[in-house]
């Protein structure tokens, strides 16, 4: 039962939860808590709040909140449209596959060629390896913030560092990041470049300090 005495004790309870009571106050509160289930329950409610509150950063609290770019909803709902399209396509693909299987049975084993179901986002590019034993595949995607690249590379000597870049029509290059070669192992990475895909003509990989491309692929945009 919450009494007047409880009401007097509650400010102490708050300070106690924050660990701010002196010994005399603590003894008074403790004596009250021993006989008051209501206040004990209140203590159980507030203690985890105070504990979690310690994780807050007062400086971050006064900083302005970082705002998302105005174009973000377009990017998101654009991606959603593409995903919706893919799902639809996949369904059509399944129906078509079932239909072609049925035709196949009717025609005594003659099966129509399957429909290609679209893969991950972006368009594939065709790499030319300018160094023996090196192979790569990539998908590039035009995004609101630039170009997204999903790259797999095999055959570059293990432990060496390699640069990935996009080349503009004037031959200048924009660095897209770097990675460590994995020898026979395929190294897979996602890269983000702040260059619109339409401004790039070529995707390439080279060793640092050497402009010669080890791998390159033209971009169609």
């Amino acid at each position: 039962m919450t009494s007047d005495h409880c009401l007097q004790m509650r400010p102490l309870l708050g300070m106690y939860v924050l660990g701010r009571l002196d010994d005399r106050e603590f003894v008074a509160l403790r004596a009250h808590l021993d006989g008051c289930p209501d206040c004990r329950s209140e203590l159980r409610d507030l203690s985890p709040v105070a504990a979690a509150l310690s994780e807050a950063d007062p400086d971050r609290l006064t900083e302005p909140l970082p705002l998302p770019p105005a174009a973000l909803p377009d990017t998101i709902f654009g991606a959603l449209d593409r995903e919706r399209g893919r799902q639809r396509y996949r369904r059509i693909g399944l129906v078509a596959a079932a239909a072609s299987a049925a035709i196949g049975l009717a025609a005594g084993g003659f099966v129509l060629r399957g429909i290609t179901v679209s893969g991950p986002p972006g368009q594939p590019v065709a790499f030319t390896a300018l160094s023996p034993g090196v192979a790569a595949s990539a998908r590039v995607e035009n995004r609101a913030w630039g170009t997204g690249i999903s790259l797999d590379v095999t055959g570059l000597p293990q432990g060496g560092t390699y640069n990935v870049w996009l080349q503009r029509p004037d031959g200048s290059r924009m660095n897209a990041g770097s990675f460590i070669g994995g020898g026979d192992r395929t190294m897979s990475m996602q890269l983000a470049v702040g260059l619109p895909m339409s401004d790039a003509t070529t995707l390439g990989v080279s060793a640092p300090g050497d402009d010669r491309a080890l791998l390159q692929a033209p971009l169609r945009s």
């Binding site: 509650r10 309870l13 708050g14 300070m15 939860v17 409610d45 507030l46 709040v49 105070a50 979690a52």
Partner: peptide, 19 residues
Amino acid sequence: VGTVRSRVYYGLKALRLVL
């Protein structure tokens, strides 16, 4: 100071509700 202590208590309660 009693007012500040009260605000601590009611502040914690309000914080719990918000959470």
